[in-house]
């Protein structure tokens, strides 16, 4: 347990960072309920594979994902508090939360690959699947140009431009955080 004592400070910061990430993702999931279009455009840019069912995310999906992140965030928060006090329980929460986040992270990775394989199989017999995917990609590019183009659009108010850019920035990074959540914990541990 000496190692724990020595690393207590950095571990508690790590627990707090992951906790904030999880709560941030949880909040984003809830906000996203009303902002499906923005999500689609940016998620597609980064991590989608052909046929990724993220296109069809719905209310319940977001609520569940949000709750999952709240619980993970809660566990890491307990870990943070425990580590600050120097208790072993804090370390337990960090490990337990890490394993849970790792499992959820692996779930997303496996789903990502499964979607890619599924679309490939369907694409063999139905080329329309690929066409549909390409349409989504074109749509993505359009959406990205739309948000980036805002900066040069003199008809928009400055506050609106900032808001659009902020939204674009947040959602561009949103799934990146989610995707790397478990990696951060795993590497740090």
């Amino acid at each position: 347990m000496e190692i724990v004592k020595n690393k207590r400070s950095s571990l508690s910061i790590l627990a707090l960072i992951v906790c904030i990430f999880s709560f941030f993702i949880a909040a984003m999931e809830l906000i996203l309920i009303g902002m499906e279009t923005v999500l689609e455009s940016n998620v597609l840019l980064f991590f989608t594979s052909p046929g990724d069912p993220i296109f069809e995310t719905t209310f319940l999906d977001h609520v569940i994902k949000s709750l999952v992140n709240i619980v993970i965030g809660g566990i890491f928060f307990m870990g943070f508090l425990g580590l600050r006090k120097g208790t072993l329980k804090g370390f337990s929460f960090l490990i337990g939360g890490g394993i849970l986040a790792l499992g959820i992270g692996l779930l997303f990775v496996s789903i990502w690959f499964a979607n890619l394989i599924d679309t490939t199989i369907l694409g063999i017999t139905n080329p329309g699947v690929w066409k549909e995917f390409c349409n989504y990609k074109r749509y993505t590019v359009r959406m990205v140009s739309h948000y980036c183009g805002n900066l040069h659009n003199h008809h928009l108010e400055k506050s609106r431009k900032i808001f659009n850019c902020l939204i674009f920035f947040i959602f561009s990074n949103f799934y990146f955080f989610k995707f790397t959540n478990f990696l951060i914990i795993n590497t740090a541990n």
Binding site: K89, F93, I95
Partner: peptide, 11 residues
């Protein structure tokens, strides 16, 4: 260590 979390009263 894991049981402290997975068997937690609230979590």
């Amino acid at each position: 260590i894991l049981d402290q979390v997975f068997l937690h009263k609230y979590f």
